[in-house]
Write a protein that binds this DNA or RNA. Sequence first.
RNA 1: UCCUCCUUAGCUCAGUUGGUUAGAGCAUCUGACUGUUAAUCAGAGGGUCGUCUGUUCAAGUCAGACAGGGGGAGCCA
Length: 482
Amino acid sequence: MFNKRTKIKALMALEPSEQTITVMGWVRSFRNNQFIALNDGSTNNNLQVVVALGLLDDATLRRITTGASLKVIGELVPSLGKGQKLELKATSLEVLGDSDAEKYPLQPKKHSLEFLREIAHLRFRTNTFGSVFRLRHSLAFAVHQFFNEKGFIYLHTPIITSSDAEGAGEMFRVTTLPFDATPRNDNNSINFKEDFFGKSTNLTVSGQLEGELGAMAFSEIYTFGPTFRAENSNTARHLAEFWMIEPEMAFHDIEDNMNLAEEFIQYLIRYAMAHNMEDLEFLDARLAEEEKQKPQNERAEMGLIEKLKLVVDNQFERITYTEAIQILLDSPHYKKKKFKYDVSWGIDMQSEHERYLVEKHFKKPVIVTGYPAAIKAFYMRLNDGCEPGKETVAAMDILAPGIGEIVGGSQREERLEKLEARMTAMHIPLEEMSWYLDTRRFGSVPHAGFGLGFERMVQFVTGMTNIRDVIAFARTPKNCEF
RNA sequence: UCCUCCUUAGCUCAGUUGGUUAGAGCAUCUGACUGUUAAUCAGAGGGUCGUCUGUUCAAGUCAGACAGGGGGAGCCA
């Protein structure tokens, strides 16, 4: 019975007719005891339901409040009013679920994003979050479609891991040991042999190392799943629980890796523009409104859709780390001593440096390659022919305007001796990583991969400035509601 | 973790050099109106001023601690 309803998005595309249509949704507003703005989440456009005077008794009318759910049967007719083409002339109306107007927190007015974060379970019912989460869905779907079209295998890497060698960040411990009576060894250290897995385990910070195992058999794989970092990061672009996409490709070098990452990002944006233009237009207008509140010199130079078009229509700028440092050193900004942190070859670039390159110098996404080995992870491939003391690795970061690092990747070190030497130098126990080193012992091949923070991608496409507003229920330090 | 700003009605905010009964708009409720579009008009209710401790005859206002939030930084995706 229920599935006979018509979704409002589909209904909006229909021609008015005498045919009887059933809709269901939630009341956004009820004006004049006659006009209901009904929304079912399929689109931000509300359906105007018209209740003729006398159709309903007073008791039922009083139950049509903001947030209440309704089943309405009626005829789709051309609207007499000016705000919409179509409206549903109700012939019967049933309140499925009441919503106490005195207690329902959402009102037909603007709410602050901070307030909506506190009622994250209801914020999906607002236009902004409706658009954001429909886009998030589309982007997730596009991720799978992109890799599927290319013949990549979707590999599910583990959430619970005993490997703690990625060095990507602080980890969340997973244990069933009692807090008040932890079993101890003779030297008073915790005896993890008593723990559920018989060893110390954590939530994963990255599926990359396991992903490499898959690439060594399937040629090309990708992972797309939650990752966890217990860093005490309190910023608008960090979460303790976030989703990451990590493709890993055999027979790819750093150049192939960059090409794929660029093509991937452009594909996702194109997909969103092709399938969610209405939502993008809403967010574009929302952002423009927000920009107006800011002082002139802080306003973004481009609108949301304009920015997305620019990224899709232009190649990303590609420069080496060495060139990036030179650009910074030559910049008027540097000469006027406007950087807080000094610039020299070998530094790990600060946000201000990356922002300068992306937002001031190139004004589009930038791929930086060839970072100093000293500031990068053990698995990145050492470049050949480096000046001693200036060793670099085949790493690449994609920096996006407004977001910063959106992709981090590298060609992996496939040469066993070089990898072992690097791991030893970085105090990574070889025995524990034996399974990883097996890939280099048995049929090692040049391979590469990257990680893309899904929420940062959603931020980039939606223009939402706080990452907490692009994930349904944000996990951040001191905050784990719902 | 550091710097900085903020916390007053359901929401968004105002609140003067510390002073007696803390205000507005929206929302809610009551009534009017009935083709509205953030409907309109009239009226009403709604407050432990984040928490604690101090200073003072007197604290929303000053000081300290704590908690929560925003922005920035670090760490990173």
